[in-house]
Nucleic acid binder design. Structure first.
Length: 508
DNA sequence: CTATGGCACGGATT
DNA sequence: AATCCGTGCCATAG
C-alpha cells in the first residue's frame, strides 16, 4: 500500500481527484475527522452546515436520525441490507458538558477516545434523541472508576423525565463495554458483569454462578478481606471452594469498570478489545437476527459539508492579487466535497456486498465466515483491487452482538478452519495430536497440512497436545479464549496501543 | 520413534 | 513489487 503523499496539490485535475479519493478512502473515521477539521480551519471556501437529512428519504430534518415519516422503513428485505452514511458520530452533548482533557490529536491509529464518548457511541443507535442528553449527562457524571455516584432521581429531575426512562438509559450503559459502567456501587457492577457472563455459560461457570451471586450481594467485604473461612461457614461450602470463587471473581469481574488494568496478567497474542471506535455499525432493524440488517457508516462530521456559496460569490469581485489563491481554495474545497461523496459511495457499495455475502457470519459468528478475497469483491464491484484494500484497511466494525472487529476480519481466509479446530479441541476427550486433528479436519472438508494445524493452534493460543491432558485444567489454562460466543469483555484491556491490522485478532 | 517448533521456499494476495 | 500464508524438511525434545 503506497500512500499518495499527503500534500494536496491544488490542481483539480482528474488525477488529483483520483489521488485524493484514494487517500480519503484509506483513512478511518478518526483520521478523516482530523483531516476535515484541518481543512475547515484553513479553507474559507469550505463550509460545514448544520443540516441533517433523514437517513432513508433524504428529507431535511432537525437532528441526526430518521425522519418521523420514514420511521417505519418500508419493505424490509433480507437480500438488500440497508446501508447508509450516518452523521451520528458528533456528539454535541458530550462536547459541551465534557471538558476534561480533549484527546483530539492523539496518535492517529486508534484509541482517540475517552470513556464517555466510547460508550455513547456504542449505545447511540438505541437511544431516542431525547435520551441522548440523558446519556451524556450520566456519562459525564461518572467518577473515575466508572461508577455513578449521584442519585438517579437528580438526573430525572434535571431532564424532566421519569425515573424509568433514566433507568433504561443506565441499563444500556451498563451493558456496553466496559460492562458495568454506570452502576451505583461496585457490587452492582459485579452483578451485572456476572449476569452478562451468565448469558453464555460454560458448565464450570454454572456451578459457580449461584454462590458467586450470593457472595457478591452479601459478603463482598468479607471476601475482599480474604476472610474465606467465614464466608465458607455462611454459605456452607468448603473454604477451598470460596478460594476458587474469589479467584474466579478477581479474574473475570471488575468492580471498577473504568479502571482498565485489573491485575492485567494476561499477555497472549490477543490484542484485547481496546477502545477502538467503530467506523461502521452493523445492527438489525429489529432485535431479531433474521430481521433485515442495517449498516451504518459513521461519518465523522455532523451535518453536511459543502462549498460556501457566499465564498463563491465573493470570488467574482476578488481583488486581483487574491484571486488566484482564492480560486485555489475554492477548487480544493469542491474537490474535497466530491471526494468525500465518492468515498461514501464506495463504502456503501462495499458494505452492501460484504454484508450480503457474510450475513451468516454476522449473525452466527466465526464459524460461518465465508472466505473471500479482496480481489473477488473488487471484481464484483467492478473497482480496482487496491480500492478495496484501501477501503478495508484500518477500519473497525461493530457487529450486532456488540463486538468490535476490524473490517479486515471479513477477509480472513482461515478463520473458518480455525474455529472448527478450536471446537474440535474443546470437544476432544483425549488430547489429539496435530496429525489427528489434521485428519479430522480433512474429514470435515478442510484439507490442511499437519504443519498448518500447528500454526492455527498457535494462533488460537492453544497448547500442544502434550500439555493439555485433562479437559478440566484446560479451562484454567486458558480462561480467556475459547468460547466463540463471547467473553469479550470484562477484563477490559489496557489502553495499550494495538498496532493496526497485522495479525488478525485471533478468534474470540 | 513421535510430536512439535523453526526456517525457508513458492504461490497467492494485496 | 512487496507481503502473507500454507507447507515441506529438518532438528530437537520427550
Amino acid at each position: 500500500m503506497i500512500l499518495q503523499s499527503q500534500s494536496q496539490s491544488l490542481r483539480p485535475l482528474t488525477t488529483a481527484h483520483l489521488a485524493q479519493t484514494m487517500t480519503l478512502l484509506e483513512l478511518n473515521g478518526e483520521q478523516l475527522r482530523q483531516k476535515i477539521e484541518a481543512e475547515l480551519a484553513d479553507n474559507p471556501a469550505l463550509e460545514q452546515i448544520d443540516e441533517h437529512r433523514c437517513l432513508t428519504c433524504g428529507r431535511a430534518i432537525t437532528a441526526p436520525g430518521v425522519c418521523p415519516l420514514c420511521n417505519h422503513i418500508s419493505e424490509p428485505n433480507n437480500d438488500q441490507p440497508i446501508v447508509f452514511v450516518s452523521p451520528f458520530t458528533d456528539f454535541k452533548p458530550i462536547d459541551q458538558v465534557d471538558d476534561d482533557e480533549d484527546c483530539s490529536d492523539d496518535d492517529i491509529n486508534a484509541i482517540p477516545e475517552d470513556l464517555p464518548t466510547f460508550i455513547l457511541r456504542q449505545i447511540a443507535p438505541e437511544l431516542a434523541i431525547e435520551e441522548r442528553s440523558i446519556a451524556a449527562h450520566i456519562l459525564t457524571s461518572l467518577d473515575e472508576d466508572g461508577l455513578l455516584r449521584i442519585p438517579i432521581i437528580e438526573i430525572a429531575r434535571y431532564h424532566h423525565c421519569t425515573l424509568a426512562r433514566v433507568e433504561k438509559v443506565i441499563k444500556l450503559i451498563q451493558h456496553a463495554e466496559p460492562i458495568g459502567t454506570g452502576s451505583a456501587t461496585p457490587q452492582e457492577a459485579l452483578l451485572i458483569q456476572l449476569d452478562v457472563l451468565a448469558e453464555n455459560p460454560s458448565p464450570a461457570f454454572l456451578r459457580l454462578y449461584p454462590s458467586a451471586r450470593q457472595v457478591i450481594v452479601e459478603d463482598i467485604d468479607l471476601l475482599s478481606r480474604r476472610a474465606y473461612n467465614e464466608v465458607a461457614r455462611k454459605l456452607g461450602i468448603t473454604s477451598a471452594e470460596v478460594q476458587r470463587l474469589a479467584t474466579f471473581i478477581s479474574e473475570n469481574l471488575n468492580p471498577y469498570p473504568a479502571r482498565a488494568h485489573w491485575g492485567d496478567i494476561h499477555h497472549s497474542s490477543e490484542p484485547r478489545h481496546n477502545y477502538i471506535t467503530p467506523d461502521i455499525i452493523i445492527s438489525h432493524l429489529y432485535e431479531s437476527p433474521d430481521s433485515p440488517i442495517v449498516v451504518e457508516i459513521l461519518s465523522p462530521y455532523s451535518g453536511a459539508l459543502r462549498v460556501n456559496p457566499l465564498f463563491r460569490e465573493v470570488l467574482e469581485q476578488a481583488p486581483q492579487e487574491k484571486a488566484e489563491s482564492w480560486q485555489a481554495h475554492l477548487d480544493q474545497a469542491s474537490l474535497l466535497v466530491k471526494c468525500i461523496q465518492q468515498r461514501n459511495n464506495t463504502m456503501v457499495r462495499l458494505m452492501q456486498n460484504i454484508v450480503r455475502i457474510q450475513r451468516e457470519f454476522i449473525n452466527h459468528g466465526d464459524a460461518y465466515l465465508i472466505p473471500i478475497t479482496r480481489a473477488r469483491l473488487a471484481f464484483e464491484l467492478d473497482v480496482h483491487e487496491s480500492t478495496i484494500s484501501r477501503a478495508v484497511a484500518g477500519k473497525a466494525v461493530q457487529l450486532p452482538n456488540r463486538r468490535i472487529i476490524l473490517l479486515d476480519k471479513f477477509f480472513d481466509r482461515s478463520l473458518q478452519i480455525r474455529t472448527a479446530l478450536r471446537e474440535l479441541i474443546e470437544k476432544e476427550t483425549r488430547p489429539l495430536s496435530d496429525t489427528d486433528l489434521a485428519q479430522k479436519l480433512l474429514s470435515m472438508g478442510y484439507p490442511v497440512a499437519r504443519r498448518t494445524v500447528a500454526k492455527y493452534r498457535a494462533m488460537e493460543g492453544i497448547l500442544p497436545a502434550r500439555f493439555r491432558s485433562g479437559s478440566s485444567q484446560e479451562i484454567q489454562a486458558q480462561t480467556s479464549r475459547q468460547k466463540p460466543g463471547l467473553r469479550p469483555s470484562i477484563r477490559v484491556a489496557t489502553a495499550a496501543v494495538n498496532g493496526l491490522a497485522n495479525h488478525n485478532p485471533p478468534g474470540k
